[in-house]
Simulated assay, not measured.
Amino acid sequence: MPELFVVRHAQASFGAANYDVLSELGHEQSFALGKALAAQGVRPDAFFIGAQRRHRETYEGIARGMGLEAAPATIHAGLNEFDFKALLDAHYRHTPPPEHMHTERKSHFRTLRDTVLAWQRGDVIDPPETWQAFTARVEAARKTLVAAQGQTVLAVSSGGAIGQMLAACVEAPSAQQIKFQLQMKNCAVNRFVFSERNFYLHGYNETPHIDASNADTMLTYS
């Protein structure tokens, strides 16, 4: 059966003025992942990325690691992350926000979890994107990926979009999406196998480029 690899972007720049830029470590992670996938014999014949800079930079590192520097990738905005900063701001538009929710990791991810659950329930007034619109565009992206002409498809996306794709695949409740998202490692690989009628989860949150010798530096979540 054809196989789809959906990769979360490498480490971005949490707390910086522009999150949407890979850190120095992020560039190392993406290159190392590309080398590891090539060593596994992965040879994609179709590539997709979201429209965000961290997706493109991660893809470029993976391609270099695989020795495919000139390989083109198709952009699909359905693979983009939801605007988590704007969503948090919308949720706390009329109430005092938790301290350091945009700058301190523990506070940010705890608050993000609660905010996403409220978003799913429809309790965030005037969000930057409705939950229904988000899930619809992720599903549209998935359909595009599996319709690509190729036996092996590789896509680079973000934790929220991948979490939703995973939750939909296993027919889990909406609340499972944020659980998948918050567990997602940088440069983690999620594998699916598919046919015209079926779409199955085949591997979750894999990091073939990380082992005991480099985990202390290479394993990150944000």
Rank of each mutant, 00 (worst) to 15 (best):
E171Y: 02
S195K: 01
E139G: 05
D114I: 01
T152G: 06
S222Y: 12
A63P: 08
Y200L: 13
E69I: 06
W119L: 02
T103D: 08
F199D: 10
R113G: 04
P44H: 10
L33S: 03
V124F: 03
A73D: 06
F134I: 00
M66K: 07
I49L: 03
S13H: 02
R43Q: 07
Q29E: 01
A10I: 01
C169R: 08
L201I: 01
K185L: 10
P128Y: 01
T207F: 07
Q132L: 07
V6L: 12
R43C: 01
I62V: 13
R53V: 15
A46Y: 11
E28D: 13
A12Q: 12
K35E: 15
F82H: 09
A36N: 12
F134N: 04
V21P: 03
V189L: 13
A172E: 14
Y92C: 04
D114W: 07
A86D: 12
Q120M: 14
V189C: 05
T115F: 03
S23E: 12
E57I: 00
N186F: 04
E81H: 06
H209N: 08
W131S: 12
A140L: 12
Q164R: 15
N198F: 15
F48R: 04
I210M: 02
E24C: 07
E3T: 14
G41M: 00
S107P: 09
M218P: 00
H100D: 15
A140K: 06
N80C: 09
F31E: 10
A73E: 02
A86G: 02
N18D: 15
H91A: 06
A147T: 07
Q151K: 09
A172M: 15
N80D: 12
S213G: 05
M184W: 04
K35G: 11
T58I: 01
A141C: 10
L25M: 05
F47K: 09
A12F: 08
L166Q: 11
G26H: 10
S107I: 02
R8E: 05
R137W: 08
K143T: 05
V146C: 05
E129N: 02
A168K: 14
F180Q: 12
A51H: 10
S157C: 04
N18P: 08
V6N: 06
L219M: 14
I75L: 14
L22I: 00
A17P: 04
R121W: 03
E99I: 07
Q176L: 14
V138Y: 01
M1L: 11
Q132C: 09
S107K: 11
L22Q: 02
T152V: 15
Y221R: 11
R54A: 11
N80A: 10
Q40L: 08
E81F: 09
F109P: 04
P2H: 06
A51K: 09
G15R: 13
R113W: 00
T111R: 03
A167C: 12
A141K: 04
R105Y: 13
A32Q: 01
T135N: 07
N205K: 10
S213E: 14
D123K: 03
H55F: 10
D126W: 07
A133V: 02
V116D: 00
Q151M: 15
H108G: 00
